[in-house]
Amino acid sequence: MGNKSRPIYAPFKLDVTGRAHLIVTNLAEPPLELAEGFDDITVWTVKTIGRGIPAPAAPGLRPFRAVAELLPQLAVRLAQATVGLRLYAIGSEAFIWDAFNVAITAGLDKAEIFVHHAGPLVRRVYCTHCRTMIEDVAADITPCPACGAHLFVRDHFSRRLAAFMGVIVDAEVPGEVPAAEALTS
């Protein structure tokens, strides 16, 4: 089934036309070997070494304690960006499209942003009924923690919400919930 709302991701590579490169990921390490021959590469990760303590920073490396800490700082960083900055977001689809939307709001052009899907196969799911966002869903059916509906995760993705559409699976005969299957993409 060809689903056209699901983005197709190109393999990661740095953009040779950029003068500075900011790589952000929701993973502890970016899953890549950075190409040599590029100057001014900064990597932001999410990694702690104790409760509430981020992993140590190093030149060109800045770990955050959570995505919730990283994204607002990304907005601040991009507001100060000069021409030539390239942003690369790597990780879950929820994270990379959140980062993409932060960058667009900050004034970057689509051509200056690169997104790359990596890490565990988990999805953010939007409950169509009560509008709650459910993070890190790994199966095609999940209960909504807010309204209690058992949601089927449609293969339909909104970049604006950075989420997949979840619609009640047993509306017609309440309780008739099929067995959930692990997501495979």
């Binding site: 089934m1 060809g2 689903n3 056209k4 709302s5 699901r6 939007y126 169509t128 509008r131 449609r154 293969d155 339909h156 993705f157 909104s158 970049r159 604006r160 919400l161 559409m165």
Partner: peptide, 23 residues
């Protein structure tokens, strides 16, 4: 279909779930 979910999408994105027709 949900406007709140689909608003802002491109033509191919909002038709994503329709079977057979893409192919």
């Amino acid at each position: 279909w949900s406007l709140n979910f689909d608003v802002g999408m491109t033509f191919h994105e909002w038709h994503g779930p329709v079977p057979l027709a893409h192919e």
